[in-house]
Design a binder for these strands. Structure first.
Lengths: 238, 238
DNA sequence: TAATTTAACTTGTATTTACAAGTAAACTAT
DNA sequence: ATAGTTTACTTGTAAATACAAGTTAAATTA
């Protein structure tokens, strides 16, 4: 059984404002209501409101200016926790599709895994899957995921086609991504990669290796992502 | 004349702890002193201490665990605000060198600049420079920088060889980088890039385009960075 | 001895209060 | 009309306080 746990106030306000920004209620360059206005609107005190705003600022949704207010940043389209932007125009509301190449299976970890694993992870084995993601019917990401098989009953039986992996983990297992490490390289496309991403052999491809931390301190998600960056770029804020 | 402005307490503690972490006083996996201990040690209240710690956490220096404490993360070597890590071992304390390819000059902005510029920036013209950075005597970064010529007297006359650009901006003009956007792609090396980075033509190279925000709301720094990722990766936290 | 409970720690959330400092528009004196 | 000043906003910094909730190890109990 899952304990729902009351959501903290600052998180509630954070979710509301974040949704408003990504829904376009507040547009790029707009000022959010002032901290004191938000206090009155949502019945909280200023430190609480400020905690919501500083979370938004840290994640790049807004920037704050003393004496002026909280200004909304433009925010690019996200795929998983990757953001992409078109080289010429913005990605906008183009269609996103996901195709499963290899359905999730339980197996041993690869011998030369890209990150070092804990003993618990090694013993548990890993859930492996491969997907290709399309933007506007063009294959952009070839994505290999590994998850340690820790407290994830019946996960290989679930339907991955339309829902995102993160969504399933969040809805069914209460697992949320808290942060992580990544390594980025440019590599020539192998035969397999060029086939999935419709590229010529040896063409430059972006390779991301990432380890994601979750709210369960023992559980990490790993992925190896190959990216066709001919028309789109990986976009990030720092 | 520069107004020194008293540094806020939370920032003072942040700088102290950050230095301790990067100097190795606290190693990876170590616990920082508890919040209450820091309060006593530095004579501040818990909200102030917590502000320092949450800044460190946001920047990836530590992670916090309720009931346990603040745990120090491993932190990779930084070049400017880029972090690199070796593919096999850590970068550790290898030698870093910078070579100036094109000394800073004042010129017009390129016609098809990678980011959109404000009117003020266009009018001011830009300071342009090219550098190559070496790690262990191997050229890793080919770096083209653009800065709007706003309130930066005599900057082209300054000595860039040993000090970093960021250091000069900070020490001489009180300019600090607050954040920014970046786009990442994999491209084939052009003739120029392959010459500077000692690569074959067409070999995959990482290309970063970044716009950096400063504490002066009108002043941005831009750079286009080409990266040899054969032996090293760009490392990041999110 | 082994399992359980308790106590003493840790960080997380939240309120209240106060003043500092930056911004912009309204106001005032020239 | 314009330059300078005031004023009313904004966010930034900081204190004191309280309780909730997660972690760990010592103390207690079966």
């Amino acid at each position: 059984m899952v304990t729902p746990k009351s959501i903290p106030q600052y998180k509630r306000l954070y979710e509301i404002l974040r949704k408003h920004i990504s829904d376009g209620v507040y547009m790029e360059g707009d000022l959010l209501p002032s901290e004191n206005e938000l206090c009155k609107l949502y019945g909280m005190t200023r430190p609480t409101v400020r905690q919501s705003l500083s979370t938004l600022a840290n994640e790049g949704y807004i920037k704050k200016r003393q004496g002026k207010g909280s200004i909304v940043n433009h925010f690019p389209r996200e795929i998983g926790i990757l953001s992409v932007s078109g080289t010429t125009s913005a990605v906008g509301d183009r269609k996103l599709k996901t195709m499963i190449i290899a359905k999730p299976v339980l197996m041993q970890w690869p011998a030369d895994f890209m990150f070092t694993l804990t003993e618990l992870e090694k013993e548990s084995g890993c859930i492996y899957m491969e997907r290709v993601r399309f933007l506007d019917d063009v294959p952009i990401f070839y994505d290999i995921s590994y998850i340690a098989n820790i407290n994830l009953p019946r996960i290989t039986a679930r339907q991955f086609e339309n829902r995102s992996l993160f969504q399933i983990l969040r809805d069914s297992y209460r697992i949320e991504i808290k942060g992580g490490d990544q390594r980025i390289k440019a590599i020539p496309a192998t035969a397999k990669i060029s086939r999935y991403l419709h590229l010529k052999r040896e063409q430059p491809v972006l390779h991301l290796e990432r380890k994601m931390e979750t709210n369960n301190p023992d559980l990490f998600l790993y992925s190896s992502i190959f990216c066709n960056t001919e028309k789109y770029s990986i976009f990030g804020r720092f």
